[in-house]
């Protein structure tokens, strides 16, 4: 695939150390000198053994973790916004329009039914509620979530069911940059394949995806390349 000239995400010289004040200020280095670019239409996996800082790096890109040094620049239209240094409000706007995040675990909202949880990002984008709910139902059906669960709050769902709700919520709206943290961890083979299909569709739509995929089959099927974070972690230690 020929890469377009401008990256969607550009990470450069990123360093992060946790300081644990409750343990006499113990320092826990995560990454140092992390740098890479991500382009539209490609899916890139963060690789390396567990504890190498893959998840932390992904969270820094989303702005969930703070950055000590370096820049994480995300394209928002004509503008490149540095997640590491931008204002909280600009970051909220960036998340609203540009960056999607599929975490491992669903943060359950009390009393809201599964289909409404999934439809929420669309409604937020201004899609009429009826259409949004219909599209949410269709996506849940594709992920083989039984229709009898759609109106129930996901709090009591199994891990796999919750994760499918989470994936649907993360993928339903169009965001040019998608961050995925172990999206298939609790899924069976059939549903893993659905997720691989969905990722392929996103790529065709020009979405840039950065993710952590432990499952080798999924990684092979979905990803174009792997960035090994081991080097960043070593530099940090």
């Amino acid at each position: 695939m020929s890469k377009p000239s401008l990256p969607i995400l550009s990470v450069s010289g990123v360093a992060k150390t946790f300081i644990l004040h409750l343990r006499e200020g113990a320092r826990l280095p995560v990454v140092n000198g992390a740098g890479f670019d991500l382009y539209a239409g490609e899916c890139v996996a963060l690789g390396g053994p567990s504890g190498a800082g893959k998840s932390s790096l992904l969270k820094m890109v989303y702005g969930n973790y703070r950055v000590d040094e370096g820049t994480i620049r995300v394209r928002d239209g004509e503008e490149m916004v540095d997640v590491a240094s931008t204002s909280p409000r600009r970051l909220i706007k960036l998340r609203d329009t540009t960056m999607g995040y599929v975490s491992q675990f669903l943060r359950v909202i009390p009393r809201v039914g599964a289909r409404d949880v999934v439809a929420e990002p669309l409604i937020h984008d201004g899609v009429p509620p009826e259409e949004a709910v219909a599209r949410a139902g269709a996506l849940l059906a594709r992920l083989n979530l039984p229709e009898r669960l759609w109106n129930l709050p996901p709090a009591t769902f199994s891990g796999g069911e919750q994760q499918r709700v989470n994936i649907a919520r993360g993928l339903i709206a169009h965001r040019p940059l998608l961050l995925m943290d172990e999206p298939t961890a609790s899924l069976d083979a059939a549903n893993r394949n659905v997720v691989v299909e969905l990722i392929a569709e996103k790529k065709r739509a020009g979405v840039a995806i950065l993710g952590i995929f432990h499952d080798a089959e999924v990684r092979e099927a979905a990803c174009d390349r792997v960035i090994d974070v081991t080097d960043f972690a070593k530099a940090a230690a």
Binding site: F18, L20, H21, L22, N64, R66, P88, L91, I92
Partner: peptide, 18 residues
Amino acid sequence: TGITDQVLDDPREPYTQL
């Protein structure tokens, strides 16, 4: 101060960590 999930998931100040 900051985005809510950032302050809660990566608190910087000793008191916030506590």
